[in-house]
Structures are given as C-alpha cells and as structure tokens.
Design a protein around this nucleic acid. Sequence first.
DNA 1: CTTGAATGATACCATTAAGGTATCATTTGT
DNA 2: ACAAATGATACCTTAATGGTATCATTCAAG
Lengths: 142, 142
Amino acid sequence: MNLLNRSTDYAVRSLIFMANDPDQVTSTAEVEKALMLPRPFLRRIFQALEKAGYLTSIKGHRGGFAMARRPDEIRLFDLMVLFQGEVSFGDCLFRKKICSCVKTCPLRREIKRMESGVLVRLKKLTLQNLLRDSAGKRGTGA
Amino acid sequence: MNLLNRSTDYAVRSLIFMANDPDQVTSTAEVEKALMLPRPFLRRIFQALEKAGYLTSIKGHRGGFAMARRPDEIRLFDLMVLFQGEVSFGDCLFRKKICSCVKTCPLRREIKRMESGVLVRLKKLTLQNLLRDSAGKRGTGA
DNA sequence: CTTGAATGATACCATTAAGGTATCATTTGT
DNA sequence: ACAAATGATACCTTAATGGTATCATTCAAG
C-alpha cells in the first residue's frame, strides 16, 4: 500500500528541491537530472502545480518554474488531494454503493477513526517541516 | 483510497456474520444470500481463511465452514496481511527501487510515523471488538 | 530573424492489480 | 444415485497508474 502515489511523491521531491533556492527558475530538465525523474511526467506534474498556484511558469528559452508560495503554505494534504483526489481510508466497498449500514457499521467506524488520526497529521505537515530536516543545499534533495 | 480491499472487507463481514452463531456450519450460499456478496468470490475468500486457520471446512452435502478461532483471536491486521500482503503506507516509490536516501528521507519518515499509528490500532482491533458493536443476531451483519 | 530550449495542452499507450467468473474434480448426507 | 457442498485453479475484464508523444507557442540569445 502507498499513502502517496508517484505524482504526489515526485511533486514533493521536486518542491523540496526547488525550495532550496526559492527565487531561482528551475526547468524540468534540471529536476530530471538532479532527481532522476522522467521529464515528460514531471512536466505534467509541474503544469498541475502551476494551475493550482504552487508554481509560476516562465515560458520560452531559459524558462522554467519558480515557487509561488512559501514552503510553510504548502501542505502535504493539499498536494495529495491535487494528485490523488479525496483522501480517505474508508470508501465503502460494498458493491460501489454506500451500503445500508454505513451509519452503524462498526468496521467503518474503526477505519474512520484511524483515518482521522492520519488526516490530522497530513493537514499539519507542510513542505517547511520537510525542508527543515532535509537541511541544506541542492543535492539528492531527500 | 481504501485501507481494506474487497477481499478483506468481505472476509470481515462474513466472519462477523458467522461469529453470531459460532458453532453453526455456514455455507457460502447462505452468506451470499444474507450479505449479498458474490458466491464464487466468497468461495475463494473462505478457502483462504480455511488455509490460514480461521475456518474449518466441512465438505460434501450440507457442508460449509465453521469458525476455527475465537473472535478475540482474530485481528483485523492479520486479515489484511492475508488478503493484501504487507501493510505499509510508505513503500518507496522511487522507481521501484529503494532510493539511496531512505534512511534520511524526511517525507518517508513522516509517512512511517503515520503508518505506525495506524498499525498499532489495526493490531489491537479484533473481530470481538467489532462484534460487540454490531450486537446481536444474524441480520445484515453490519 | 532564426534557432533552440523551454512550457501549454492534450492525446495516447502499456502494464498491472483488483474484482470477479468458470470449470472440473471430489466429498458426503439423504 | 443424486444433489449440494468444498478443493483447486485457470481465466477474464476493467480501471487506474505511470509514463510517452506530439504539436503549438513563447522567448532569450547569437
């Protein structure tokens, strides 16, 4: 199982990388090289980040992307929503409909309880928190 | 996202159902009828539960399955392992190999922290806990 | 004023896993 | 003997994920 999918994961890694030089313009090519992530995929991710307001894009020769928000304004939770949709552990599995017993289902109740614990943490966790630890210069980033 | 997949989910529902009459032999046909779950799929699930020691099977006409363990000995966590494999939030996504930075990756560290919170709960949670709440007779089970 | 390096927008593709079905053999109560 | 059950296993279908490709546009630099 994975809490994050690739898009989210790559987005976080890239943002950490870029946040080490917040004013610099970074091209997908650079990120590809530095983090060894596939460029076309990165492009799609960055475009999404741009649309969502995390990055600004600079077009043309020597273009690229630059941070549009401070790292403490970027929450992991929001990135997950962006790339994975609703974050939830307990989508009812009962034949795709909500089963009649949602309200009382003890199993779901427990699952939801665990979910909310994780959600609290995810919503608190910002890029800044991750940066603090990954300390320092542009290297492997993570 | 879902913490449980269908197999686990159906397994839990079925076990709850069966545990309401622990000594009775229950056929997949009955469970299909009562819980409206697809019989061939249930069969596969029950066979797995039997192999893993949760159920005993009675072959032949009027056969079926019976509980082989007490509900307080059946942990959700173990069912998940059985039907979903290792329970983990943070399988490294970095191109399928463990990336060089596993040890220090701040992202992974956080993910693992959340994971362990959930694992603690999952390992504590038994069928008995779920039964207590679902209270009573064989009905919709949940 | 052309060239090449970059993004914008989008369509396409391939693989895998999940969910589910089908089949044939065997067992066993009636 | 028959019907109703499991044992074992192979097969199928679909959707999501991860990733690629393409064409148009922008723009700095020579």
